[in-house]
Design a binder for these strands. Structure first.
Lengths: 261, 261
DNA sequence: TCCTTTTGCGTATGCCATACGCGTTACTGC
DNA sequence: GCAGTAACGCGTATGGCATACGCAAAAGGA
Protein backbone atom coordinates (compact mmCIF):
# COMPACT_ATOMS: atom_id res chain seq x y z
CA UNK A 1 0.00 0.00 0.00
CA UNK A 2 2.44 2.64 -1.09
CA UNK A 3 1.04 6.15 -1.26
CA UNK A 4 1.47 8.14 -4.41
CA UNK A 5 0.61 11.53 -2.98
CA UNK A 6 1.84 13.12 0.16
CA UNK A 7 -1.62 13.67 1.57
CA UNK A 8 -2.50 10.01 2.08
CA UNK A 9 -5.83 8.24 1.77
CA UNK A 10 -7.55 6.53 -1.13
CA UNK A 11 -7.07 7.35 -4.79
CA UNK A 12 -8.52 10.52 -6.20
CA UNK A 13 -9.86 10.84 -9.73
CA UNK A 14 -6.96 11.67 -12.02
CA UNK A 15 -8.34 15.07 -12.92
CA UNK A 16 -8.63 16.11 -9.28
CA UNK A 17 -5.13 14.94 -8.52
CA UNK A 18 -3.88 17.11 -11.36
CA UNK A 19 -5.99 20.11 -10.40
CA UNK A 20 -4.66 20.11 -6.86
CA UNK A 21 -1.09 19.71 -8.06
CA UNK A 22 -0.64 16.41 -6.30
CA UNK A 23 1.13 14.78 -9.21
CA UNK A 24 4.47 13.33 -8.16
CA UNK A 25 7.34 14.10 -10.51
CA UNK A 26 8.97 10.77 -11.22
CA UNK A 27 12.71 10.71 -10.58
CA UNK A 28 13.62 8.25 -13.27
CA UNK A 29 13.07 8.90 -16.95
CA UNK A 30 14.01 11.69 -19.36
CA UNK A 31 13.07 15.29 -18.62
CA UNK A 32 9.53 16.12 -19.71
CA UNK A 33 9.47 18.41 -22.71
CA UNK A 34 6.03 19.74 -21.89
CA UNK A 35 4.08 20.49 -18.74
CA UNK A 36 0.48 20.34 -17.66
CA UNK A 37 0.44 24.12 -17.36
CA UNK A 38 1.63 24.65 -20.92
CA UNK A 39 -0.85 22.13 -22.28
CA UNK A 40 -3.77 23.66 -20.44
CA UNK A 41 -2.74 27.14 -21.48
CA UNK A 42 -2.55 26.09 -25.11
CA UNK A 43 -5.95 24.42 -24.93
CA UNK A 44 -7.44 27.52 -23.33
CA UNK A 45 -5.96 29.66 -26.08
CA UNK A 46 -7.49 27.45 -28.74
CA UNK A 47 -10.88 27.56 -27.03
CA UNK A 48 -10.72 31.33 -26.70
CA UNK A 49 -9.80 31.74 -30.35
CA UNK A 50 -11.98 29.15 -32.06
CA UNK A 51 -14.39 27.80 -29.46
CA UNK A 52 -14.44 24.65 -27.41
CA UNK A 53 -15.29 22.63 -30.47
CA UNK A 54 -11.89 23.45 -31.93
CA UNK A 55 -10.10 21.94 -28.95
CA UNK A 56 -8.88 18.56 -30.10
CA UNK A 57 -5.86 16.71 -28.87
CA UNK A 58 -4.29 17.11 -32.28
CA UNK A 59 -4.90 20.83 -32.45
CA UNK A 60 -3.53 21.47 -28.97
CA UNK A 61 -0.45 19.40 -29.70
CA UNK A 62 0.09 21.26 -32.95
CA UNK A 63 -0.10 24.55 -31.09
CA UNK A 64 2.68 23.31 -28.83
CA UNK A 65 4.81 21.89 -31.62
CA UNK A 66 4.43 18.41 -30.19
CA UNK A 67 2.76 15.25 -31.42
CA UNK A 68 -0.80 14.35 -30.54
CA UNK A 69 0.07 11.32 -28.47
CA UNK A 70 2.68 13.05 -26.38
CA UNK A 71 -0.12 14.89 -24.57
CA UNK A 72 -1.28 11.62 -23.09
CA UNK A 73 1.86 11.51 -20.99
CA UNK A 74 0.45 14.48 -19.05
CA UNK A 75 -3.29 14.00 -19.28
CA UNK A 76 -5.04 10.68 -18.99
CA UNK A 77 -7.98 11.60 -21.19
CA UNK A 78 -9.55 14.58 -22.87
CA UNK A 79 -12.11 14.90 -20.08
CA UNK A 80 -9.29 15.58 -17.69
CA UNK A 81 -8.02 18.35 -19.92
CA UNK A 82 -11.53 19.80 -19.91
CA UNK A 83 -11.62 19.91 -16.14
CA UNK A 84 -8.27 21.64 -15.99
CA UNK A 85 -9.32 24.13 -18.66
CA UNK A 86 -12.45 24.99 -16.74
CA UNK A 87 -10.46 25.41 -13.58
CA UNK A 88 -7.98 27.68 -15.32
CA UNK A 89 -10.70 29.73 -16.98
CA UNK A 90 -12.61 30.48 -13.82
CA UNK A 91 -9.56 31.06 -11.68
CA UNK A 92 -9.54 31.88 -7.99
CA UNK A 93 -11.94 34.49 -6.63
CA UNK A 94 -10.67 37.95 -5.73
CA UNK A 95 -11.35 39.11 -2.17
CA UNK A 96 -14.81 40.55 -1.64
CA UNK A 97 -14.65 44.21 -0.73
CA UNK A 98 -18.14 44.03 0.76
CA UNK A 99 -16.84 41.55 3.31
CA UNK A 100 -14.07 43.86 4.44
CA UNK A 101 -16.28 46.90 4.80
CA UNK A 102 -18.98 44.87 6.54
CA UNK A 103 -21.56 45.98 4.02
CA UNK A 104 -23.94 43.11 4.76
CA UNK A 105 -24.90 39.90 3.06
CA UNK A 106 -26.86 41.46 0.23
CA UNK A 107 -23.98 43.59 -1.02
CA UNK A 108 -21.59 40.69 -0.55
CA UNK A 109 -23.73 38.25 -2.51
CA UNK A 110 -24.23 40.80 -5.25
CA UNK A 111 -20.51 41.38 -5.57
CA UNK A 112 -19.86 37.65 -5.48
CA UNK A 113 -22.36 36.89 -8.22
CA UNK A 114 -21.14 39.73 -10.41
CA UNK A 115 -17.55 38.54 -10.10
CA UNK A 116 -18.54 35.02 -11.05
CA UNK A 117 -20.53 36.31 -13.99
CA UNK A 118 -17.57 38.29 -15.20
CA UNK A 119 -15.38 35.20 -15.25
CA UNK A 120 -17.93 33.26 -17.23
CA UNK A 121 -18.46 36.04 -19.70
CA UNK A 122 -14.74 36.22 -20.26
CA UNK A 123 -14.62 32.50 -21.05
CA UNK A 124 -17.96 31.57 -22.53
CA UNK A 125 -16.54 28.35 -23.94
CA UNK A 126 -16.05 27.06 -20.38
CA UNK A 127 -19.82 26.76 -20.00
CA UNK A 128 -19.88 24.11 -22.74
CA UNK A 129 -17.76 21.76 -20.69
CA UNK A 130 -19.97 19.07 -19.20
CA UNK A 131 -19.83 18.87 -15.42
CA UNK A 132 -19.20 15.43 -13.97
CA UNK A 133 -20.86 15.23 -10.60
CA UNK A 134 -20.24 17.58 -7.71
CA UNK A 135 -17.25 19.90 -8.05
CA UNK A 136 -14.11 19.42 -5.99
CA UNK A 137 -11.50 21.46 -7.81
CA UNK A 138 -9.49 24.11 -5.93
CA UNK A 139 -11.10 27.11 -7.54
CA UNK A 140 -14.69 25.87 -7.37
CA UNK A 141 -14.12 25.19 -3.72
CA UNK A 142 -12.62 28.63 -3.19
CA UNK A 143 -15.66 30.26 -4.81
CA UNK A 144 -17.97 28.15 -2.71
CA UNK A 145 -16.10 29.14 0.42
CA UNK A 146 -16.37 32.78 -0.52
CA UNK A 147 -20.10 32.43 -1.06
CA UNK A 148 -20.42 30.98 2.41
CA UNK A 149 -18.43 33.87 3.80
CA UNK A 150 -20.79 36.31 2.13
CA UNK A 151 -23.61 34.73 4.12
CA UNK A 152 -21.53 34.61 7.31
CA UNK A 153 -23.68 37.07 9.23
CA UNK A 154 -26.98 36.29 7.55
CA UNK A 155 -28.27 34.15 10.38
CA UNK A 156 -29.13 31.34 7.99
CA UNK A 157 -28.57 27.72 8.93
CA UNK A 158 -25.70 25.84 7.32
CA UNK A 159 -27.97 23.92 4.99
CA UNK A 160 -29.74 27.04 3.82
CA UNK A 161 -26.44 28.77 3.17
CA UNK A 162 -25.34 26.09 0.75
CA UNK A 163 -28.75 26.04 -0.88
CA UNK A 164 -28.65 29.78 -1.46
CA UNK A 165 -25.13 29.60 -2.84
CA UNK A 166 -26.16 26.81 -5.17
CA UNK A 167 -29.23 28.71 -6.30
CA UNK A 168 -27.32 31.84 -7.16
CA UNK A 169 -24.45 29.94 -8.73
CA UNK A 170 -26.84 28.16 -11.01
CA UNK A 171 -28.55 31.40 -11.89
CA UNK A 172 -25.26 32.99 -12.88
CA UNK A 173 -24.38 29.97 -14.98
CA UNK A 174 -27.78 30.03 -16.67
CA UNK A 175 -27.54 33.65 -17.60
CA UNK A 176 -24.03 33.23 -18.95
CA UNK A 177 -25.09 30.16 -20.88
CA UNK A 178 -27.86 32.14 -22.51
CA UNK A 179 -25.36 34.77 -23.50
CA UNK A 180 -23.10 32.08 -24.85
CA UNK A 181 -25.91 30.50 -26.87
CA UNK A 182 -26.84 33.86 -28.25
CA UNK A 183 -23.33 34.73 -29.26
CA UNK A 184 -22.89 31.28 -30.79
CA UNK A 185 -26.01 31.84 -32.90
CA UNK A 186 -24.78 35.26 -33.91
CA UNK A 187 -21.41 33.91 -34.98
CA UNK A 188 -22.90 30.88 -36.73
CA UNK A 189 -25.17 33.01 -38.85
CA UNK A 190 -22.69 35.80 -39.37
CA UNK A 191 -25.01 38.60 -38.33
CA UNK A 192 -25.23 41.23 -35.60
CA UNK A 193 -27.16 40.63 -32.38
CA UNK A 194 -29.73 43.19 -33.50
CA UNK A 195 -30.32 41.35 -36.74
CA UNK A 196 -30.73 38.10 -34.83
CA UNK A 197 -33.32 39.64 -32.52
CA UNK A 198 -35.18 41.12 -35.47
CA UNK A 199 -35.09 37.83 -37.34
CA UNK A 200 -36.37 35.98 -34.31
CA UNK A 201 -39.20 38.44 -33.89
CA UNK A 202 -40.16 38.03 -37.54
CA UNK A 203 -40.11 34.26 -37.18
CA UNK A 204 -42.34 34.40 -34.12
CA UNK A 205 -44.80 36.72 -35.80
CA UNK A 206 -45.11 34.23 -38.59
CA UNK A 207 -45.53 31.15 -36.42
CA UNK A 208 -47.54 32.40 -33.49
CA UNK A 209 -51.28 32.01 -33.72
CA UNK A 210 -53.22 34.81 -31.95
CA UNK A 211 -55.94 32.35 -30.93
CA UNK A 212 -53.69 29.72 -29.41
CA UNK A 213 -51.05 32.15 -28.17
CA UNK A 214 -52.78 35.29 -26.96
CA UNK A 215 -50.13 36.04 -24.35
CA UNK A 216 -47.23 35.89 -26.79
CA UNK A 217 -49.19 37.86 -29.34
CA UNK A 218 -49.63 40.58 -26.79
CA UNK A 219 -45.91 40.48 -26.05
CA UNK A 220 -45.13 40.87 -29.73
CA UNK A 221 -47.52 43.80 -30.01
CA UNK A 222 -46.06 45.51 -26.98
CA UNK A 223 -42.68 45.24 -28.69
CA UNK A 224 -40.99 43.70 -25.67
CA UNK A 225 -38.82 41.50 -27.84
CA UNK A 226 -36.62 44.28 -29.10
CA UNK A 227 -34.96 45.06 -25.79
CA UNK A 228 -31.42 46.42 -25.87
CA UNK A 229 -28.72 45.12 -23.48
CA UNK A 230 -30.92 42.15 -22.87
CA UNK A 231 -28.33 40.06 -21.06
CA UNK A 232 -27.31 42.76 -18.60
CA UNK A 233 -30.91 43.62 -17.90
CA UNK A 234 -31.98 40.02 -17.31
CA UNK A 235 -29.06 39.48 -14.98
CA UNK A 236 -29.96 42.47 -12.86
CA UNK A 237 -33.60 41.52 -12.87
CA UNK A 238 -32.93 37.94 -11.83
CA UNK A 239 -30.50 38.94 -9.10
CA UNK A 240 -33.06 41.37 -7.72
CA UNK A 241 -35.79 38.76 -7.56
CA UNK A 242 -33.43 36.17 -6.13
CA UNK A 243 -32.08 38.45 -3.42
CA UNK A 244 -35.57 39.57 -2.46
CA UNK A 245 -36.43 35.91 -2.04
CA UNK A 246 -33.35 35.32 0.08
CA UNK A 247 -34.23 38.37 2.15
CA UNK A 248 -37.64 36.87 2.88
CA UNK A 249 -35.92 33.63 3.88
CA UNK A 250 -33.53 35.41 6.22
CA UNK A 251 -36.29 37.44 7.79
CA UNK A 252 -38.27 34.29 8.40
CA UNK A 253 -35.21 32.60 9.92
CA UNK A 254 -34.69 35.59 12.23
CA UNK A 255 -38.36 35.63 13.26
CA UNK A 256 -38.27 31.92 13.99
CA UNK A 257 -35.18 32.38 16.11
CA UNK A 258 -36.76 35.18 18.07
CA UNK A 259 -39.87 33.14 18.60
CA UNK A 260 -38.02 30.03 19.67
CA UNK A 261 -35.63 32.05 21.84
CA UNK B 1 -40.32 33.51 -56.08
CA UNK B 2 -42.30 30.35 -55.58
CA UNK B 3 -43.25 29.60 -51.99
CA UNK B 4 -42.46 26.21 -50.58
CA UNK B 5 -44.75 26.42 -47.56
CA UNK B 6 -48.30 27.51 -47.40
CA UNK B 7 -47.63 30.14 -44.77
CA UNK B 8 -45.61 32.49 -46.95
CA UNK B 9 -42.70 34.72 -46.05
CA UNK B 10 -38.94 34.15 -45.97
CA UNK B 11 -37.22 30.84 -45.38
CA UNK B 12 -37.21 29.31 -41.95
CA UNK B 13 -34.34 27.26 -40.58
CA UNK B 14 -34.82 23.69 -41.69
CA UNK B 15 -35.29 22.39 -38.17
CA UNK B 16 -38.10 24.84 -37.47
CA UNK B 17 -39.83 24.00 -40.70
CA UNK B 18 -39.76 20.37 -39.71
CA UNK B 19 -40.88 21.00 -36.14
CA UNK B 20 -43.93 22.95 -37.30
CA UNK B 21 -44.80 20.30 -39.85
CA UNK B 22 -44.44 22.70 -42.74
CA UNK B 23 -42.59 20.21 -44.90
CA UNK B 24 -44.29 19.80 -48.24
CA UNK B 25 -44.69 16.20 -49.37
CA UNK B 26 -43.23 16.11 -52.85
CA UNK B 27 -45.62 14.66 -55.42
CA UNK B 28 -42.98 13.18 -57.63
CA UNK B 29 -40.64 10.41 -56.49
CA UNK B 30 -41.07 7.01 -54.88
CA UNK B 31 -42.93 6.62 -51.59
CA UNK B 32 -40.78 7.35 -48.57
CA UNK B 33 -39.97 4.23 -46.61
CA UNK B 34 -39.40 6.15 -43.41
CA UNK B 35 -40.85 9.24 -41.82
CA UNK B 36 -39.57 12.04 -39.62
CA UNK B 37 -41.77 10.77 -36.81
CA UNK B 38 -40.32 7.28 -36.94
CA UNK B 39 -36.77 8.59 -37.09
CA UNK B 40 -37.25 10.93 -34.15
CA UNK B 41 -38.98 8.20 -32.16
CA UNK B 42 -36.11 5.82 -32.80
CA UNK B 43 -33.55 8.44 -31.81
CA UNK B 44 -35.47 9.21 -28.63
CA UNK B 45 -35.58 5.51 -27.81
CA UNK B 46 -31.82 5.22 -28.24
CA UNK B 47 -31.24 8.27 -26.05
CA UNK B 48 -33.56 6.94 -23.38
CA UNK B 49 -31.84 3.57 -23.39
CA UNK B 50 -28.17 4.47 -23.74
CA UNK B 51 -27.91 8.24 -23.37
CA UNK B 52 -27.56 11.06 -25.86
CA UNK B 53 -24.00 10.02 -26.58
CA UNK B 54 -25.26 6.78 -28.09
CA UNK B 55 -27.37 8.65 -30.63
CA UNK B 56 -25.47 8.47 -33.88
CA UNK B 57 -26.90 8.50 -37.34
CA UNK B 58 -25.69 4.96 -37.81
CA UNK B 59 -27.23 3.68 -34.62
CA UNK B 60 -30.59 5.29 -35.30
CA UNK B 61 -30.63 3.91 -38.83
CA UNK B 62 -29.76 0.47 -37.53
CA UNK B 63 -32.65 0.65 -35.09
CA UNK B 64 -34.94 1.35 -38.04
CA UNK B 65 -33.47 -1.32 -40.27
CA UNK B 66 -32.35 1.33 -42.74
CA UNK B 67 -28.99 2.57 -43.91
CA UNK B 68 -27.20 5.49 -42.32
CA UNK B 69 -27.41 7.74 -45.31
CA UNK B 70 -31.11 7.23 -45.89
CA UNK B 71 -31.80 9.35 -42.82
CA UNK B 72 -30.42 12.38 -44.60
CA UNK B 73 -33.42 12.31 -46.91
CA UNK B 74 -35.53 13.33 -43.91
CA UNK B 75 -33.14 15.36 -41.79
CA UNK B 76 -30.65 17.83 -43.14
CA UNK B 77 -28.12 17.39 -40.33
CA UNK B 78 -27.77 15.81 -36.95
CA UNK B 79 -28.45 19.13 -35.23
CA UNK B 80 -31.87 19.14 -36.78
CA UNK B 81 -32.53 15.69 -35.37
CA UNK B 82 -31.47 17.01 -31.97
CA UNK B 83 -33.98 19.82 -32.12
CA UNK B 84 -36.76 17.45 -33.05
CA UNK B 85 -35.76 15.04 -30.28
CA UNK B 86 -35.84 17.81 -27.73
CA UNK B 87 -39.21 18.92 -28.97
CA UNK B 88 -40.57 15.39 -28.79
CA UNK B 89 -39.13 14.80 -25.33
CA UNK B 90 -40.62 17.89 -23.75
CA UNK B 91 -43.95 17.59 -25.51
CA UNK B 92 -46.84 20.02 -25.21
CA UNK B 93 -47.89 21.28 -21.77
CA UNK B 94 -50.99 19.88 -20.11
CA UNK B 95 -53.63 22.42 -19.07
CA UNK B 96 -52.93 24.11 -15.73
CA UNK B 97 -55.58 23.23 -13.19
CA UNK B 98 -54.65 26.28 -11.15
CA UNK B 99 -55.69 28.48 -14.04
CA UNK B 100 -59.11 26.91 -14.25
CA UNK B 101 -59.83 27.15 -10.55
CA UNK B 102 -58.52 30.70 -10.41
CA UNK B 103 -56.06 29.76 -7.70
CA UNK B 104 -53.77 32.72 -8.31
CA UNK B 105 -50.41 33.25 -9.93
CA UNK B 106 -48.35 31.57 -7.23
CA UNK B 107 -50.18 28.26 -7.47
CA UNK B 108 -50.19 28.49 -11.25
CA UNK B 109 -46.47 29.15 -11.50
CA UNK B 110 -45.74 26.35 -9.05
CA UNK B 111 -47.79 23.91 -11.06
CA UNK B 112 -46.19 25.11 -14.27
CA UNK B 113 -42.66 24.70 -12.99
CA UNK B 114 -43.37 21.28 -11.50
CA UNK B 115 -44.81 20.08 -14.79
CA UNK B 116 -41.79 21.30 -16.67
CA UNK B 117 -39.48 19.66 -14.17
CA UNK B 118 -41.29 16.38 -14.55
CA UNK B 119 -40.76 16.40 -18.31
CA UNK B 120 -37.06 17.07 -17.92
CA UNK B 121 -36.63 14.41 -15.29
CA UNK B 122 -38.31 11.93 -17.58
CA UNK B 123 -35.87 12.76 -20.37
CA UNK B 124 -32.63 13.82 -18.74
CA UNK B 125 -30.73 13.29 -21.97
CA UNK B 126 -32.65 16.20 -23.52
CA UNK B 127 -30.75 18.61 -21.29
CA UNK B 128 -27.50 17.64 -23.02
CA UNK B 129 -28.71 18.98 -26.33
CA UNK B 130 -27.10 22.33 -26.98
CA UNK B 131 -29.57 25.17 -27.51
CA UNK B 132 -29.05 27.27 -30.62
CA UNK B 133 -30.30 30.74 -29.94
CA UNK B 134 -33.80 31.64 -28.79
CA UNK B 135 -36.37 28.85 -29.05
CA UNK B 136 -39.14 28.92 -31.61
CA UNK B 137 -40.38 25.34 -31.68
CA UNK B 138 -44.09 24.63 -31.19
CA UNK B 139 -43.79 23.08 -27.77
CA UNK B 140 -41.36 25.62 -26.33
CA UNK B 141 -43.72 28.31 -27.50
CA UNK B 142 -46.69 26.53 -25.96
CA UNK B 143 -44.89 26.32 -22.61
CA UNK B 144 -43.94 29.95 -22.84
CA UNK B 145 -47.52 30.89 -23.56
CA UNK B 146 -48.71 28.87 -20.61
CA UNK B 147 -46.23 30.61 -18.33
CA UNK B 148 -47.57 33.95 -19.49
CA UNK B 149 -51.09 32.76 -18.75
CA UNK B 150 -50.03 31.80 -15.23
CA UNK B 151 -49.04 35.42 -14.72
CA UNK B 152 -52.18 36.71 -16.42
CA UNK B 153 -53.65 38.32 -13.31
CA UNK B 154 -50.39 39.15 -11.59
CA UNK B 155 -50.46 42.80 -12.55
CA UNK B 156 -46.92 42.60 -13.88
CA UNK B 157 -45.88 44.46 -17.01
CA UNK B 158 -45.31 42.48 -20.19
CA UNK B 159 -41.55 42.72 -19.94
CA UNK B 160 -41.52 41.55 -16.35
CA UNK B 161 -43.74 38.61 -17.19
CA UNK B 162 -41.28 37.30 -19.73
CA UNK B 163 -38.37 37.92 -17.38
CA UNK B 164 -40.05 35.95 -14.61
CA UNK B 165 -40.89 33.10 -16.98
CA UNK B 166 -37.32 33.04 -18.20
CA UNK B 167 -35.96 33.08 -14.67
CA UNK B 168 -38.06 30.16 -13.52
CA UNK B 169 -37.51 28.22 -16.74
CA UNK B 170 -33.79 28.51 -16.29
CA UNK B 171 -34.04 27.47 -12.68
CA UNK B 172 -35.96 24.34 -13.60
CA UNK B 173 -33.40 23.52 -16.25
CA UNK B 174 -30.53 24.05 -13.83
CA UNK B 175 -31.98 21.77 -11.22
CA UNK B 176 -32.72 19.08 -13.77
CA UNK B 177 -29.24 19.42 -15.19
CA UNK B 178 -27.74 18.90 -11.75
CA UNK B 179 -29.81 15.77 -11.38
CA UNK B 180 -28.66 14.64 -14.78
CA UNK B 181 -25.00 15.27 -13.92
CA UNK B 182 -25.42 13.38 -10.70
CA UNK B 183 -27.05 10.40 -12.31
CA UNK B 184 -24.43 10.41 -15.04
CA UNK B 185 -21.70 10.29 -12.40
CA UNK B 186 -23.50 7.51 -10.57
CA UNK B 187 -23.84 5.46 -13.74
CA UNK B 188 -20.29 6.15 -14.87
CA UNK B 189 -18.83 4.93 -11.60
CA UNK B 190 -21.28 2.10 -11.15
CA UNK B 191 -22.25 3.00 -7.61
CA UNK B 192 -25.35 4.10 -5.72
CA UNK B 193 -26.16 7.79 -5.15
CA UNK B 194 -25.44 7.30 -1.45
CA UNK B 195 -22.00 5.93 -2.17
CA UNK B 196 -21.31 8.87 -4.46
CA UNK B 197 -22.31 11.36 -1.78
CA UNK B 198 -20.18 9.57 0.79
CA UNK B 199 -17.23 9.45 -1.58
CA UNK B 200 -17.57 13.13 -2.34
CA UNK B 201 -17.68 13.96 1.35
CA UNK B 202 -14.54 11.92 1.95
CA UNK B 203 -12.79 13.67 -0.92
CA UNK B 204 -13.72 17.09 0.41
CA UNK B 205 -12.56 16.22 3.90
CA UNK B 206 -9.22 15.30 2.47
CA UNK B 207 -8.79 18.37 0.29
CA UNK B 208 -10.34 21.14 2.32
CA UNK B 209 -8.02 23.12 4.54
CA UNK B 210 -9.68 24.36 7.76
CA UNK B 211 -7.60 27.55 7.67
CA UNK B 212 -8.37 28.52 4.11
CA UNK B 213 -11.88 27.07 4.05
CA UNK B 214 -13.48 27.65 7.45
CA UNK B 215 -16.99 27.89 6.05
CA UNK B 216 -16.80 24.59 4.20
CA UNK B 217 -15.14 22.94 7.16
CA UNK B 218 -18.07 23.98 9.28
CA UNK B 219 -20.45 22.59 6.68
CA UNK B 220 -18.63 19.28 6.74
CA UNK B 221 -18.75 19.18 10.53
CA UNK B 222 -22.46 19.97 10.60
CA UNK B 223 -22.95 17.00 8.29
CA UNK B 224 -25.01 18.97 5.80
CA UNK B 225 -23.54 17.07 2.88
CA UNK B 226 -25.33 13.83 3.60
CA UNK B 227 -28.80 15.13 2.84
CA UNK B 228 -31.35 12.64 1.49
CA UNK B 229 -33.61 13.46 -1.47
CA UNK B 230 -31.27 16.28 -2.27
CA UNK B 231 -32.71 17.09 -5.68
CA UNK B 232 -36.31 17.29 -4.52
CA UNK B 233 -35.35 19.39 -1.55
CA UNK B 234 -33.27 21.84 -3.56
CA UNK B 235 -36.06 22.22 -6.08
CA UNK B 236 -38.60 23.09 -3.42
CA UNK B 237 -36.17 25.41 -1.71
CA UNK B 238 -35.30 27.24 -4.89
CA UNK B 239 -38.90 27.59 -5.98
CA UNK B 240 -39.80 29.01 -2.59
CA UNK B 241 -37.08 31.64 -2.73
CA UNK B 242 -37.87 32.47 -6.33
CA UNK B 243 -41.59 32.85 -5.75
CA UNK B 244 -41.01 34.98 -2.67
CA UNK B 245 -38.88 37.22 -4.86
CA UNK B 246 -41.59 37.39 -7.50
CA UNK B 247 -44.12 38.19 -4.81
CA UNK B 248 -42.04 41.15 -3.73
CA UNK B 249 -41.87 42.27 -7.34
CA UNK B 250 -45.62 42.01 -7.79
CA UNK B 251 -46.31 43.85 -4.57
CA UNK B 252 -43.99 46.62 -5.65
CA UNK B 253 -45.68 46.81 -9.05
CA UNK B 254 -49.08 47.05 -7.37
CA UNK B 255 -47.88 49.75 -4.98
CA UNK B 256 -46.44 51.76 -7.83
CA UNK B 257 -49.71 51.48 -9.69
CA UNK B 258 -51.67 52.69 -6.70
CA UNK B 259 -49.32 55.58 -6.19
CA UNK B 260 -49.35 56.67 -9.81
CA UNK B 261 -53.13 56.25 -10.03
C1' DT C 1 28.04 0.40 -16.05
C1' DC C 2 23.69 -1.74 -16.33
C1' DC C 3 18.89 -1.64 -15.39
C1' DT C 4 14.63 0.42 -14.72
C1' DT C 5 11.48 3.79 -15.69
C1' DT C 6 9.59 7.46 -18.34
C1' DT C 7 9.76 10.12 -22.37
C1' DG C 8 8.18 11.40 -27.34
C1' DC C 9 5.77 9.72 -30.88
C1' DG C 10 4.51 6.69 -35.27
C1' DT C 11 1.08 3.64 -36.34
C1' DA C 12 -3.33 1.55 -36.19
C1' DT C 13 -8.23 1.01 -34.79
C1' DG C 14 -12.73 2.16 -34.71
C1' DC C 15 -16.10 5.59 -34.41
C1' DC C 16 -18.26 9.64 -36.29
C1' DA C 17 -20.85 13.08 -39.67
C1' DT C 18 -21.65 13.70 -44.08
C1' DA C 19 -20.61 14.84 -49.47
C1' DC C 20 -21.39 12.55 -53.79
C1' DG C 21 -23.31 9.81 -57.24
C1' DC C 22 -25.77 5.82 -59.02
C1' DG C 23 -29.56 2.91 -59.96
C1' DT C 24 -34.48 2.73 -59.02
C1' DT C 25 -39.16 4.28 -58.39
C1' DA C 26 -43.39 6.72 -59.12
C1' DC C 27 -45.83 10.58 -60.44
C1' DT C 28 -46.93 14.38 -64.37
C1' DG C 29 -47.66 16.26 -68.77
C1' DC C 30 -48.31 14.89 -73.25
C1' DG D 1 -49.49 4.74 -72.48
C1' DC D 2 -45.13 6.94 -72.55
C1' DA D 3 -41.34 10.07 -71.77
C1' DG D 4 -39.39 13.09 -68.52
C1' DT D 5 -38.29 14.37 -64.01
C1' DA D 6 -37.68 14.41 -59.29
C1' DA D 7 -37.30 12.02 -54.96
C1' DC D 8 -36.02 7.72 -53.11
C1' DG D 9 -32.48 4.15 -50.72
C1' DC D 10 -27.97 3.55 -50.07
C1' DG D 11 -22.79 2.15 -51.20
C1' DT D 12 -18.67 4.39 -51.11
C1' DA D 13 -15.33 7.74 -49.81
C1' DT D 14 -13.36 11.56 -47.07
C1' DG D 15 -11.66 13.70 -43.25
C1' DG D 16 -11.81 14.23 -38.39
C1' DC D 17 -11.72 12.39 -33.86
C1' DA D 18 -9.97 9.92 -29.27
C1' DT D 19 -6.99 6.82 -27.95
C1' DA D 20 -4.63 1.78 -27.43
C1' DC D 21 -0.10 -0.13 -28.29
C1' DG D 22 4.64 -0.59 -28.75
C1' DC D 23 9.20 0.95 -29.78
C1' DA D 24 13.42 3.58 -29.41
C1' DA D 25 15.79 7.06 -26.91
C1' DA D 26 16.84 9.38 -22.50
C1' DA D 27 18.17 9.70 -17.71
C1' DG D 28 18.52 8.68 -12.97
C1' DG D 29 19.70 4.79 -9.40
C1' DA D 30 22.15 0.59 -8.26
Amino acid sequence: MTEKNGSGGGDLPASLEAAWGLRDRPAKGPKPGLSLERIVAAAVAVAAADGLGAVSMGRVAQELGASTMSLYRYVSAKDELYVLMQEAAIGPPAPLSALETGAGWRAALTEWAAAQRERYHGHLWALRIPIGGPPATPNSIAWWEQGLQALRDSGLGEGDKTSVILLISNFVRSEALMTSDLSAAVIARGITPEELAASHERTLKRLVDPERHPGITQQLETGVMSAPDEADYEFGFGMGVLLDGVEALIRRAADGEVKSA
